[in-house]
Simulated scan of single mutants.
Amino acid sequence: MTTYFEDLTVGETDEFGTYDVTEEEIVEFAGQYDPQPFHTDPEEAAETIYGGLIASGWHTCAMTMRLLVDGHFDDSAAMGARGVEELRFPRPVRPGDSLSVRTEILEKTVDSADRGTARVRSETVTENDELVLSMTSEVMYARR
C-alpha cells in the first residue's frame, strides 16, 4: 500500500533495514569520493585518531539513504527532499558494523492541493544501538 502525505502521523516512528558494512566497500567509496587515508588505507588509518579504517560520513549518508529507500520510500508517494538539517556523525562507521534506521515524523505542513511536506528525524544505528548518523529532513509527499 502506497504511503501518502495523509497517511503520516506526527509522532509516528518506524524502524527498519539491515546494511552490513564491509572494508572493501568503505575503501571503494572513499577511493572515488573521499580519498583520505583513514577511509582508504587500513594501515595508515590505524595510526590516526580513529585507530582504524572508518567510512566517510558521505558514505554513511549513502548507506542511510539506501535503507530509507528500501524501508520506506520505495512504497510511498515521496517526491524527494527539500533539504537536510542537523546532519551529525556522532560515531564513525567501521567495517563489520550492521546498520539500521529509525525515523520519527516531527511535523507536517500542507504545501498545496497535491502535496505536503513532512519534517522527519532519522537516526542510523549499529547492531549495538550506537548512533552513527542523525539528521532532520523535509520530505515532500503527494497528497491523495
Rank of each mutant, 00 (worst) to 15 (best):
Met1Ile: 11
Thr3Asp: 13
Phe5Pro: 04
Glu6Leu: 15
Asp7Gly: 15
Asp7Ala: 15
Asp7Phe: 15
Gly11Cys: 12
Glu12Gly: 14
Glu12Asp: 15
Thr13Pro: 08
Thr13Ser: 15
Thr13Phe: 11
Gly17Phe: 01
Tyr19Gln: 08
Tyr19Thr: 03
Tyr19His: 15
Asp20Gly: 13
Asp20Leu: 12
Asp20Met: 12
Val21Ala: 06
Thr22Asp: 07
Glu23Cys: 12
Glu24Cys: 03
Glu25Gln: 13
Ile26Tyr: 04
Glu28Tyr: 03
Glu28Gly: 06
Ala30Cys: 01
Gly31Glu: 06
Gln32Gly: 06
Gln32Tyr: 04
Tyr33Gly: 08
Tyr33Gln: 03
Tyr33Ile: 05
Tyr33Asp: 06
Asp34Ala: 03
Asp34His: 01
Pro35His: 04
Pro35Ala: 08
Pro35Glu: 05
Pro35Cys: 12
Phe38Tyr: 14
His39Met: 01
His39Ala: 07
Thr40Gln: 07
Thr40Lys: 02
Pro42Cys: 12
Ala46Leu: 12
Glu47Thr: 12
Tyr50Ile: 00
Gly51Glu: 04
Gly52Ser: 01
Leu53Lys: 02
Cys61Arg: 02
Met63Leu: 13
Leu67Asp: 10
Leu67Glu: 09
Val69Cys: 02
Val69Trp: 12
Asp70Ser: 12
Phe73Trp: 14
Phe73Val: 08
Phe73Tyr: 14
Asp74Val: 11
Ala77Thr: 00
Ala77Val: 09
Met79Phe: 03
Met79Ile: 07
Gly80Met: 05
Ala81Trp: 08
Ala81Val: 00
Arg82Glu: 12
Gly83Tyr: 01
Val84Asn: 05
Glu85Leu: 00
Glu85Trp: 00
Glu86Val: 01
Leu87Arg: 09
Pro92Ile: 07
Arg94His: 10
Pro95Lys: 02
Ser98Glu: 11
Leu99His: 08
Ser100Leu: 10
Lys108Tyr: 09
Thr109Tyr: 10
Val110Pro: 01
Ser112Trp: 08
Ala118Asn: 08
Arg119Phe: 06
Val120Asp: 10
Val120Thr: 06
Arg121His: 11
Arg121Met: 09
Ser122His: 12
Glu123Ala: 07
Thr126Ser: 03
Asp129Ser: 06
Val132Ala: 06
Leu133Met: 06
Ser134Pro: 00
Ser134Asp: 09
Met135Glu: 07
Thr136Arg: 05
Ser137Phe: 02
Ser137Leu: 02
Glu138Ile: 02
Val139Tyr: 10
Ala142Arg: 15
Arg143Lys: 15
Arg144His: 11
